[in-house]
Amino acid sequence: MPVKHVNNVPVWQRREPLKQYAIWAGWMLGGMLFLLCWKVISDNTIWEFMNDAGTQAGSLIGRMIPPDWSITGSLMLPLWDTINIATVGTALGILIAFPLAFLAARNTTPHPALRAVALAIIVSSRSINALIWAMLLVTIVGPGIFAGMLAIALRSIGFVGKLLYEAIEEIHPTPVEALSSTGAARTQVLAYAVWPQIMPAFAGISVYRWDINIREATTLGLVGAGGIGLQMNAAINNLAWAQVATVFVLIFATVIVSEWVSAKVRHAVI
């Protein structure tokens, strides 16, 4: 216990002095970095806009309420598209991520070089937002649901792949040893000793990603990749804020339902 003597009276201290100074220095550096960053942002901001931010916000909210319920019927098809983008995209992503995870896990990879390639694919897919993938795909396959599905799939590969290969690396090794010692082939060991152990994690990860993908799919329309985002974009461009509010309410409801479904499924499999 660090003790400091002040006038020969021992005073308890929480930390060693050097460590305490280091922590203070760390806080100070962090604070300075924050101020520096704030200055950069402040320089790039037109503060005149800020003066009427309050009135802008007020008028925005005023124009959103009440929402324009008359368009609800016409939003049902885009909503269905959004759910399809998320679901099919998730399924496609899982289909690719599943084998990739086995290549990327240290204990199941056939070769270290393949492992490096799989890890590179996973990190690239994870680093890039679905919206960016969608922008790219719209220029490649044209606007529409298909681009959205591919974008969701490309983003999901990294997410599912990473969590799944971590689950594979955490399995108990003894059943694998036991089944190898029966003379079972590699594929049989994977099916009998590895798969049962990762199955709950796999189901949980998939449903979790589907839940996230529902949220992401609502925005893909902003760059032309289908779904309810298209209607939202059109309404925003027309400054029809009452319609935008309707879209928001629908998105909110869909997300709450999807969250409930995913929580139910995750409970069921664990």
Partner: peptide, 18 residues
Amino acid sequence: QEIIIAILFVTMFGFGPL
């Protein structure tokens, strides 16, 4: 999503990093 919130805040505070 962040992008939807961003649209609203850009409308309120104008373009830019703020």
